[in-house]
Design a protein around this nucleic acid. Structure first.
Lengths: 185, 185
DNA sequence: TGGCTCATGTAATCTGTTACATGATTCT
DNA sequence: AGAATCATGTAACAGATTACATGAGCCA
Protein backbone atom coordinates (compact mmCIF):
# COMPACT_ATOMS: atom_id res chain seq x y z
CA UNK A 1 0.00 0.00 0.00
CA UNK A 2 2.67 2.46 1.05
CA UNK A 3 5.20 3.78 -1.44
CA UNK A 4 7.50 0.83 -1.94
CA UNK A 5 9.09 1.50 -5.27
CA UNK A 6 12.24 3.00 -3.91
CA UNK A 7 14.09 2.70 -7.20
CA UNK A 8 12.06 5.68 -8.44
CA UNK A 9 13.44 7.82 -5.65
CA UNK A 10 16.98 6.53 -5.87
CA UNK A 11 17.00 7.68 -9.49
CA UNK A 12 15.23 10.96 -8.80
CA UNK A 13 17.66 11.59 -5.95
CA UNK A 14 20.70 11.05 -8.14
CA UNK A 15 19.19 13.21 -10.88
CA UNK A 16 18.51 15.94 -8.30
CA UNK A 17 22.28 16.41 -8.16
CA UNK A 18 22.95 16.39 -11.90
CA UNK A 19 21.58 15.10 -15.22
CA UNK A 20 22.74 11.55 -15.92
CA UNK A 21 22.38 8.65 -18.35
CA UNK A 22 21.07 5.28 -17.20
CA UNK A 23 24.56 3.90 -17.42
CA UNK A 24 25.94 6.68 -15.24
CA UNK A 25 23.16 6.13 -12.69
CA UNK A 26 24.25 2.53 -12.38
CA UNK A 27 27.83 3.63 -11.79
CA UNK A 28 26.81 6.14 -9.14
CA UNK A 29 24.82 3.48 -7.29
CA UNK A 30 27.66 0.96 -7.46
CA UNK A 31 30.23 3.45 -6.29
CA UNK A 32 28.46 5.69 -3.82
CA UNK A 33 25.35 3.92 -2.56
CA UNK A 34 26.56 0.35 -2.66
CA UNK A 35 27.07 0.13 1.10
CA UNK A 36 23.37 0.50 1.70
CA UNK A 37 21.62 0.11 -1.66
CA UNK A 38 22.00 -1.62 -5.01
CA UNK A 39 20.33 -1.82 -8.42
CA UNK A 40 20.70 -3.48 -11.80
CA UNK A 41 20.24 -2.22 -15.37
CA UNK A 42 17.14 -4.37 -15.57
CA UNK A 43 15.45 -2.09 -13.07
CA UNK A 44 17.10 1.22 -13.94
CA UNK A 45 16.11 1.50 -17.61
CA UNK A 46 12.44 0.53 -17.16
CA UNK A 47 12.17 2.90 -14.19
CA UNK A 48 13.60 5.77 -16.23
CA UNK A 49 11.06 5.09 -18.99
CA UNK A 50 8.26 5.14 -16.44
CA UNK A 51 9.48 8.31 -14.75
CA UNK A 52 9.45 10.00 -18.12
CA UNK A 53 5.83 8.98 -18.67
CA UNK A 54 4.99 10.54 -15.32
CA UNK A 55 6.77 13.76 -16.34
CA UNK A 56 9.21 13.44 -13.47
CA UNK A 57 12.20 13.42 -15.80
CA UNK A 58 12.87 14.59 -19.35
CA UNK A 59 15.06 12.77 -21.83
CA UNK A 60 17.59 14.31 -24.16
CA UNK A 61 19.05 12.12 -26.86
CA UNK A 62 22.55 13.13 -27.78
CA UNK A 63 25.38 11.85 -29.90
CA UNK A 64 28.67 12.08 -28.12
CA UNK A 65 31.84 10.86 -29.82
CA UNK A 66 29.70 8.92 -32.24
CA UNK A 67 27.97 7.17 -29.33
CA UNK A 68 24.27 7.43 -28.58
CA UNK A 69 23.37 8.66 -25.15
CA UNK A 70 20.14 9.51 -23.40
CA UNK A 71 20.62 12.11 -20.73
CA UNK A 72 17.85 12.37 -18.16
CA UNK A 73 17.06 15.55 -16.26
CA UNK A 74 14.75 15.87 -13.26
CA UNK A 75 11.68 18.11 -13.64
CA UNK A 76 9.94 20.22 -11.01
CA UNK A 77 7.30 17.50 -10.74
CA UNK A 78 10.11 15.04 -10.10
CA UNK A 79 11.60 17.25 -7.41
CA UNK A 80 8.24 17.57 -5.69
CA UNK A 81 7.80 13.81 -5.79
CA UNK A 82 11.25 13.31 -4.28
CA UNK A 83 10.66 15.90 -1.55
CA UNK A 84 7.35 14.27 -0.62
CA UNK A 85 9.04 10.90 -0.28
CA UNK A 86 11.84 12.32 1.86
CA UNK A 87 9.23 13.49 4.36
CA UNK A 88 7.83 10.01 4.88
CA UNK A 89 9.44 7.93 7.61
CA UNK A 90 11.98 5.39 6.37
CA UNK A 91 10.30 2.02 6.55
CA UNK A 92 12.71 -0.48 5.11
CA UNK A 93 15.74 -0.70 7.33
CA UNK A 94 16.97 -4.22 7.09
CA UNK A 95 20.11 -6.18 7.36
CA UNK A 96 20.20 -9.53 5.61
CA UNK A 97 23.37 -11.30 6.53
CA UNK A 98 23.68 -14.84 5.33
CA UNK A 99 26.84 -15.06 7.43
CA UNK A 100 24.78 -14.68 10.61
CA UNK A 101 22.28 -17.22 9.39
CA UNK A 102 25.03 -19.77 8.78
CA UNK A 103 26.67 -18.97 12.08
CA UNK A 104 23.36 -19.32 13.91
CA UNK A 105 23.05 -22.86 12.60
CA UNK A 106 26.74 -23.54 13.24
CA UNK A 107 25.95 -26.43 15.60
CA UNK A 108 25.22 -28.49 12.49
CA UNK A 109 28.79 -28.23 11.25
CA UNK A 110 32.35 -27.98 12.53
CA UNK A 111 33.83 -25.03 14.43
CA UNK A 112 36.34 -24.75 11.59
CA UNK A 113 33.54 -24.16 9.10
CA UNK A 114 32.13 -21.35 11.20
CA UNK A 115 35.57 -19.83 11.61
CA UNK A 116 36.00 -20.01 7.89
CA UNK A 117 32.79 -18.10 7.27
CA UNK A 118 33.84 -15.38 9.69
CA UNK A 119 37.26 -15.10 8.10
CA UNK A 120 35.70 -14.59 4.69
CA UNK A 121 33.44 -11.89 6.05
CA UNK A 122 36.30 -10.23 7.91
CA UNK A 123 38.45 -10.15 4.80
CA UNK A 124 35.71 -8.57 2.75
CA UNK A 125 35.09 -5.87 5.35
CA UNK A 126 38.81 -5.21 5.72
CA UNK A 127 39.18 -4.81 1.98
CA UNK A 128 36.31 -2.35 1.73
CA UNK A 129 37.00 -0.25 4.81
CA UNK A 130 39.94 1.73 3.34
CA UNK A 131 37.73 2.90 0.49
CA UNK A 132 35.13 4.18 2.95
CA UNK A 133 37.76 5.83 5.11
CA UNK A 134 39.24 7.44 2.02
CA UNK A 135 35.85 8.85 1.09
CA UNK A 136 35.42 10.31 4.58
CA UNK A 137 38.87 11.91 4.49
CA UNK A 138 38.31 13.38 1.07
CA UNK A 139 34.86 14.71 1.86
CA UNK A 140 36.09 16.24 5.11
CA UNK A 141 38.92 18.02 3.34
CA UNK A 142 36.97 19.68 0.55
CA UNK A 143 34.77 21.89 2.75
CA UNK A 144 32.76 23.33 -0.09
CA UNK A 145 29.30 24.81 -0.14
CA UNK A 146 27.82 21.79 -1.88
CA UNK A 147 25.38 20.46 0.73
CA UNK A 148 25.14 17.16 -1.13
CA UNK A 149 28.73 16.44 -0.10
CA UNK A 150 27.84 16.98 3.54
CA UNK A 151 25.18 14.28 3.39
CA UNK A 152 27.43 11.94 1.49
CA UNK A 153 29.95 12.36 4.31
CA UNK A 154 27.37 11.45 6.95
CA UNK A 155 26.48 8.21 5.21
CA UNK A 156 30.13 7.34 4.64
CA UNK A 157 30.74 7.82 8.35
CA UNK A 158 27.92 5.39 9.04
CA UNK A 159 29.76 2.87 6.91
CA UNK A 160 33.05 3.35 8.73
CA UNK A 161 31.41 3.11 12.14
CA UNK A 162 29.54 -0.10 11.39
CA UNK A 163 32.45 -1.71 9.56
CA UNK A 164 34.70 -1.06 12.52
CA UNK A 165 32.08 -2.62 14.80
CA UNK A 166 31.96 -5.66 12.49
CA UNK A 167 35.73 -6.06 12.71
CA UNK A 168 35.66 -5.91 16.51
CA UNK A 169 32.95 -8.53 16.55
CA UNK A 170 34.93 -10.73 14.15
CA UNK A 171 37.99 -10.59 16.40
CA UNK A 172 35.94 -11.37 19.53
CA UNK A 173 34.04 -14.18 17.88
CA UNK A 174 37.13 -15.78 16.39
CA UNK A 175 38.78 -15.85 19.81
CA UNK A 176 35.77 -17.60 21.31
CA UNK A 177 35.52 -20.15 18.53
CA UNK A 178 39.26 -20.81 18.43
CA UNK A 179 39.21 -21.46 22.17
CA UNK A 180 36.40 -23.95 21.71
CA UNK A 181 38.21 -25.60 18.85
CA UNK A 182 41.35 -26.18 20.89
CA UNK A 183 39.38 -27.65 23.78
CA UNK A 184 37.88 -30.19 21.41
CA UNK A 185 41.31 -31.27 20.12
CA UNK B 1 22.38 -20.22 -10.82
CA UNK B 2 23.81 -20.59 -7.33
CA UNK B 3 21.63 -21.69 -4.45
CA UNK B 4 19.50 -18.67 -3.77
CA UNK B 5 16.51 -20.14 -2.01
CA UNK B 6 17.69 -19.47 1.48
CA UNK B 7 14.24 -19.98 2.96
CA UNK B 8 14.78 -23.73 2.54
CA UNK B 9 17.81 -23.59 4.78
CA UNK B 10 16.32 -21.24 7.34
CA UNK B 11 13.56 -23.77 7.84
CA UNK B 12 15.87 -26.78 7.81
CA UNK B 13 18.11 -24.98 10.28
CA UNK B 14 15.28 -24.32 12.70
CA UNK B 15 14.04 -27.89 12.33
CA UNK B 16 17.57 -29.16 13.03
CA UNK B 17 17.04 -27.95 16.59
CA UNK B 18 13.56 -29.36 17.12
CA UNK B 19 10.38 -30.38 15.27
CA UNK B 20 8.09 -27.41 14.64
CA UNK B 21 4.86 -26.38 12.96
CA UNK B 22 4.83 -23.72 10.25
CA UNK B 23 3.33 -21.31 12.72
CA UNK B 24 6.07 -21.95 15.24
CA UNK B 25 8.72 -21.50 12.55
CA UNK B 26 7.34 -18.06 11.86
CA UNK B 27 7.51 -17.21 15.55
CA UNK B 28 11.10 -18.41 15.83
CA UNK B 29 12.12 -16.28 12.87
CA UNK B 30 10.36 -13.19 14.20
CA UNK B 31 11.82 -13.58 17.64
CA UNK B 32 15.30 -14.96 17.13
CA UNK B 33 16.39 -14.25 13.57
CA UNK B 34 14.61 -10.97 13.01
CA UNK B 35 17.76 -8.89 13.40
CA UNK B 36 19.27 -10.41 10.31
CA UNK B 37 16.52 -12.34 8.53
CA UNK B 38 12.76 -12.33 8.01
CA UNK B 39 10.01 -14.41 6.41
CA UNK B 40 6.26 -14.48 5.92
CA UNK B 41 3.67 -17.27 6.05
CA UNK B 42 3.33 -16.92 2.30
CA UNK B 43 6.83 -18.29 1.89
CA UNK B 44 7.00 -20.63 4.88
CA UNK B 45 4.06 -22.92 4.09
CA UNK B 46 4.87 -23.47 0.39
CA UNK B 47 8.52 -24.10 1.29
CA UNK B 48 7.53 -26.72 3.87
CA UNK B 49 5.37 -28.46 1.28
CA UNK B 50 8.26 -28.50 -1.15
CA UNK B 51 10.76 -29.74 1.42
CA UNK B 52 8.43 -32.64 2.14
CA UNK B 53 8.33 -33.55 -1.55
CA UNK B 54 12.13 -33.60 -1.54
CA UNK B 55 12.11 -35.88 1.53
CA UNK B 56 14.01 -33.33 3.56
CA UNK B 57 11.27 -33.15 6.19
CA UNK B 58 8.42 -35.40 7.28
CA UNK B 59 5.00 -34.22 8.34
CA UNK B 60 2.98 -35.45 11.27
CA UNK B 61 -0.61 -34.34 11.51
CA UNK B 62 -1.82 -34.12 15.07
CA UNK B 63 -4.84 -32.93 16.95
CA UNK B 64 -3.90 -30.96 20.02
CA UNK B 65 -6.60 -29.49 22.22
CA UNK B 66 -9.05 -29.94 19.38
CA UNK B 67 -6.79 -27.93 17.09
CA UNK B 68 -5.18 -29.28 13.95
CA UNK B 69 -1.42 -29.06 13.74
CA UNK B 70 1.19 -30.26 11.31
CA UNK B 71 4.50 -30.90 12.99
CA UNK B 72 7.50 -31.09 10.68
CA UNK B 73 10.65 -33.06 11.48
CA UNK B 74 13.94 -32.88 9.61
CA UNK B 75 15.19 -36.09 7.94
CA UNK B 76 18.75 -37.26 7.41
CA UNK B 77 18.48 -36.06 3.81
CA UNK B 78 17.45 -32.68 5.16
CA UNK B 79 20.41 -32.60 7.52
CA UNK B 80 22.79 -33.44 4.71
CA UNK B 81 21.32 -30.69 2.58
CA UNK B 82 21.70 -28.20 5.42
CA UNK B 83 25.29 -29.24 6.13
CA UNK B 84 26.20 -28.88 2.45
CA UNK B 85 24.78 -25.37 2.38
CA UNK B 86 26.65 -24.39 5.55
CA UNK B 87 29.90 -25.21 3.80
CA UNK B 88 29.27 -22.80 0.94
CA UNK B 89 30.52 -19.25 1.43
CA UNK B 90 27.86 -16.76 2.51
CA UNK B 91 27.03 -14.70 -0.54
CA UNK B 92 24.21 -12.40 0.42
CA UNK B 93 25.43 -9.98 3.04
CA UNK B 94 23.53 -6.81 2.49
CA UNK B 95 22.30 -3.87 4.39
CA UNK B 96 19.36 -1.98 2.92
CA UNK B 97 18.76 1.12 4.95
CA UNK B 98 16.19 3.49 3.58
CA UNK B 99 17.26 5.89 6.30
CA UNK B 100 20.69 6.25 4.69
CA UNK B 101 19.12 6.68 1.29
CA UNK B 102 16.95 9.52 2.56
CA UNK B 103 19.84 11.08 4.43
CA UNK B 104 22.04 10.86 1.33
CA UNK B 105 19.52 12.94 -0.57
CA UNK B 106 18.99 15.26 2.39
CA UNK B 107 20.08 18.31 0.41
CA UNK B 108 16.64 18.23 -1.20
CA UNK B 109 14.88 18.89 2.08
CA UNK B 110 15.33 20.71 5.37
CA UNK B 111 17.87 19.83 8.04
CA UNK B 112 14.94 19.32 10.38
CA UNK B 113 13.58 16.58 8.14
CA UNK B 114 16.89 14.75 8.19
CA UNK B 115 17.12 15.11 11.95
CA UNK B 116 13.64 13.73 12.22
CA UNK B 117 14.57 10.63 10.22
CA UNK B 118 17.60 10.02 12.42
CA UNK B 119 15.54 10.43 15.58
CA UNK B 120 13.06 7.84 14.39
CA UNK B 121 15.87 5.41 13.64
CA UNK B 122 17.56 6.10 16.96
CA UNK B 123 14.36 5.48 18.87
CA UNK B 124 13.78 2.18 17.14
CA UNK B 125 17.31 1.00 17.85
CA UNK B 126 17.10 2.14 21.47
CA UNK B 127 13.85 0.27 21.94
CA UNK B 128 15.26 -2.96 20.50
CA UNK B 129 18.68 -2.92 22.12
CA UNK B 130 17.53 -3.96 25.63
CA UNK B 131 15.96 -7.09 24.17
CA UNK B 132 19.23 -8.03 22.48
CA UNK B 133 21.24 -7.29 25.59
CA UNK B 134 18.81 -9.36 27.62
CA UNK B 135 19.30 -12.28 25.25
CA UNK B 136 23.08 -12.01 25.58
CA UNK B 137 22.88 -11.92 29.37
CA UNK B 138 20.55 -14.87 29.52
CA UNK B 139 22.55 -16.96 27.07
CA UNK B 140 25.79 -16.20 28.89
CA UNK B 141 24.31 -17.27 32.21
CA UNK B 142 22.92 -20.65 31.20
CA UNK B 143 26.26 -22.26 30.29
CA UNK B 144 24.76 -25.51 29.14
CA UNK B 145 26.04 -28.11 26.75
CA UNK B 146 23.60 -27.11 24.02
CA UNK B 147 25.92 -25.85 21.29
CA UNK B 148 23.00 -24.19 19.54
CA UNK B 149 22.86 -21.68 22.41
CA UNK B 150 26.50 -20.81 21.88
CA UNK B 151 25.86 -19.84 18.29
CA UNK B 152 22.75 -17.93 19.20
CA UNK B 153 24.87 -15.95 21.66
CA UNK B 154 27.42 -15.07 18.97
CA UNK B 155 24.75 -13.65 16.66
CA UNK B 156 23.09 -11.75 19.51
CA UNK B 157 26.46 -10.19 20.29
CA UNK B 158 26.71 -9.09 16.68
CA UNK B 159 23.40 -7.33 17.13
CA UNK B 160 24.50 -5.56 20.31
CA UNK B 161 27.79 -4.46 18.76
CA UNK B 162 26.22 -3.02 15.63
CA UNK B 163 23.32 -1.41 17.45
CA UNK B 164 25.73 0.34 19.79
CA UNK B 165 27.68 1.57 16.77
CA UNK B 166 24.44 2.85 15.24
CA UNK B 167 23.64 4.80 18.41
CA UNK B 168 27.09 6.39 18.45
CA UNK B 169 26.66 7.39 14.83
CA UNK B 170 23.20 8.83 15.57
CA UNK B 171 24.59 10.99 18.37
CA UNK B 172 27.50 12.22 16.23
CA UNK B 173 25.30 12.92 13.24
CA UNK B 174 22.66 14.74 15.24
CA UNK B 175 25.31 17.03 16.71
CA UNK B 176 26.59 17.90 13.24
CA UNK B 177 23.15 18.54 11.82
CA UNK B 178 21.98 20.52 14.85
CA UNK B 179 25.05 22.75 14.54
CA UNK B 180 24.25 23.35 10.89
CA UNK B 181 20.65 24.07 11.73
CA UNK B 182 21.54 26.77 14.26
CA UNK B 183 23.92 28.45 11.85
CA UNK B 184 21.11 28.76 9.31
CA UNK B 185 18.77 30.41 11.85
C1' DT C 1 -18.87 -11.48 23.57
C1' DG C 2 -15.07 -9.53 21.70
C1' DG C 3 -10.35 -9.61 20.83
C1' DC C 4 -6.15 -12.12 20.71
C1' DT C 5 -3.50 -16.07 19.66
C1' DC C 6 -3.14 -20.47 17.34
C1' DA C 7 -3.12 -22.58 12.84
C1' DT C 8 -2.90 -23.44 7.62
C1' DG C 9 -3.09 -22.12 3.22
C1' DT C 10 -3.68 -19.61 -1.58
C1' DA C 11 -3.81 -15.90 -5.22
C1' DA C 12 -2.39 -11.76 -6.79
C1' DT C 13 1.10 -8.87 -6.95
C1' DC C 14 5.55 -6.73 -6.44
C1' DT C 15 10.09 -5.76 -7.06
C1' DG C 16 13.89 -6.86 -8.72
C1' DT C 17 17.73 -9.84 -10.80
C1' DT C 18 19.99 -12.58 -14.41
C1' DA C 19 20.91 -13.48 -18.80
C1' DC C 20 20.74 -12.22 -23.24
C1' DA C 21 21.05 -9.17 -27.45
C1' DT C 22 23.50 -5.55 -29.75
C1' DG C 23 27.07 -2.61 -31.01
C1' DA C 24 30.40 1.36 -30.77
C1' DT C 25 34.63 3.28 -28.66
C1' DT C 26 38.77 3.32 -26.01
C1' DC C 27 42.70 1.44 -23.93
C1' DT C 28 46.86 -1.68 -23.94
C1' DA D 1 43.97 -7.40 -32.27
C1' DG D 2 41.61 -8.10 -28.18
C1' DA D 3 39.81 -6.70 -23.84
C1' DA D 4 37.48 -3.46 -21.24
C1' DT D 5 34.32 0.08 -20.98
C1' DC D 6 30.43 2.75 -22.69
C1' DA D 7 25.60 2.43 -23.69
C1' DT D 8 20.57 0.80 -24.04
C1' DG D 9 17.25 -2.33 -23.67
C1' DT D 10 14.11 -6.80 -23.10
C1' DA D 11 12.37 -11.44 -21.57
C1' DA D 12 12.28 -14.87 -18.40
C1' DC D 13 12.46 -15.92 -13.97
C1' DA D 14 13.05 -15.71 -8.93
C1' DG D 15 11.88 -15.00 -4.59
C1' DA D 16 9.20 -13.12 -1.72
C1' DT D 17 5.26 -10.14 0.42
C1' DT D 18 0.48 -8.72 1.14
C1' DA D 19 -4.03 -9.57 1.48
C1' DC D 20 -7.41 -12.66 1.75
C1' DA D 21 -9.99 -16.89 3.31
C1' DT D 22 -11.16 -19.81 7.13
C1' DG D 23 -11.88 -21.36 11.60
C1' DA D 24 -10.97 -23.02 16.49
C1' DG D 25 -9.53 -22.10 21.29
C1' DC D 26 -8.37 -18.95 25.13
C1' DC D 27 -8.73 -15.06 28.11
C1' DA D 28 -10.86 -10.92 30.31
Amino acid sequence: MAIEKRMDFVILGLLSHEPLTGYEIKKRIDKTLKFFWSASFGSIYPTLAQLEKENKVTRLETLERGRDKIIYTITSIGRESLAAWLQLPAEKNELRYELLLKLFFGDNTSTMQSLNQINLFEQKIKSELPYLKGAVKQLESIQDTETAHKYYLLTAKFGVKTYEAYLEWCADTKKILEGDNEKSN
